[in-house]
Design a protein around this nucleic acid. Structure first.
Lengths: 229, 229
DNA sequence: CCTGATGAGTTAGAAGCTATAACGAAAACT
DNA sequence: AGTTTTCGTTATAGCTTCTAACTCATCAGG
């Protein structure tokens, strides 16, 4: 990071912006993103309402920044896990750990989209980085599908629509596996964190493990070509 | 339905409540649940603000009613599909069709939970009804797991935690399958409808089909006992 | 038929929010 | 030292939910 001789003012400004974000995260963690209030943050920081607009153009800009930081934290976590030699299972567990750490942060990124909001390019770049970690990890997985295995129809489709993998060398079957991992993790986590399992009595973590086990073992066993579309 | 000789007043009241819900659904469909405004609905109906509080105690009660109706509509849809002899695949497609019909309705039920809100008993009853349809359909599925198949660890866990199935005779392996179906459908749909796939270029419907195909075919093929965990 | 209760709708207002405008004061640059 | 930039303030508009108090119509019983 090029620390380009910051003036004291710039440093102060950056520090205040950071403090605002800090309060914002605390607020989100306790009451969800919808409860985020610039006014309340300002008062918490001892200054009055509109002062915050010197630091963030508005609620949307602050939320955008939070989303960007959220993606960044997940990407870093997964990258670190991968660097530690995590396999697919460990990677999935890393995602779950990250999500349980702050469920509302998870929902900020992967929950109900906010009406008018449109993700800036930076977040899609980080998303691609996350996808790259998934692809790398699947590629290293012992029983991962290879180019020789029979190809599912959807893998064939991905052969022609793999721009999102940004030149990653993984074969289409691995792209398919990575998307499945993403979707299945998302499925369990969004249900679990939204409280859809409460009252059902079974262990959500055990279910999560079962889903990942299924994903990994059916990949290792190879799979019969599906009969019906 | 016992039409218990309604007075004209009661009929009027019921009709106004229905009209309010109608506007609310329209608002939710176009701008999401967070944009739902009692004030705006009142003005749209030609009456001024607080008049609505004669019909709904507050925003929360209206949303609760909408959520209940939402679950009802999904449950009815699935029940109808099952009555038409739908197999697991068709049932999954029915869920997706229902979700695509009004994505914000899907998110109202299965998206980011609203902070203070707690689901009333009625919705959990309807949820159980939906689950029953899933279990029925899986039980009828030709290649569904039986009590003789080797049992996954999670199915064993479900053997002792199956209160949520409310006395349904399906074996634990089928309970497991039903939960998997739920989670996998939820995974693809929440990502797709939140726009997480936009810009990636592949066909979300094809991915959905592939997920269901995988779920159904691995069930039919039986599965090797997982080595780890 | 007339009277009294019930319920619908009104305006006024409190408390909260986002956001803009106009202004004072402090700090930094020239 | 003077000028400009930046920070923080108050005032204000417009929106929200929701309560309180009041008017008026409708409906039921004597």
């Amino acid at each position: 990071m090029s620390a380009k001789t910051e003036t004291p003012r710039e440093r102060y400004r950056a520090q205040v912006r950071a403090e605002i974000k800090d309060h914002a995260w605390r607020q989100i963690a306790t009451a969800g993103a919808s409860a985020l209030s610039l006014n309340a943050i300002a008062k918490l920081m001892g200054m009055s309402g509109p002062a915050l607009y010197r630091y963030y153009a508005g609620r949307d800009e602050l939320i955008t920044e939070l989303i960007k930081d959220g993606y960044r934290s997940l990407a870093d976590r997964l990258r670190a896990a991968a660097d530690d030699g995590a396999d697919v299972r460990a990677l999935a567990r890393a995602v779950r750990g990250w999500a349980l750490e702050d469920p509302n942060r998870f929902f900020l990124l992967y929950g109900t989209p906010v009406p008018g909001y449109h993700a800036p390019d930076e977040t899609t770049v980080i998303s691609a980085e996350i996808m790259a970690v998934l692809l790398d990890t699947w590629s290293r997985e012992p029983g991962a599908p290879t180019a020789e295995d029979p190809e599912t129809p959807f893998a064939a489709h991905l052969r022609d629509h793999r721009a999102w993998s940004r030149g990653h060398p993984a074969p289409p079957a691995v792209l398919h596996r990575a998307l499945s991992l993403w979707a299945r993790v998302q499925g369990v986590l969004s249900l679990e964190l939204a409280g859809q399992f409460t009252g059902m009595g079974f262990d959500a973590e055990a279910f999560f493990e079962a889903e990942i086990t299924d994903l990994v073992t059916t990949a290792a066993a190879g799979r019969p070509a599906p009969s019906a579309q």
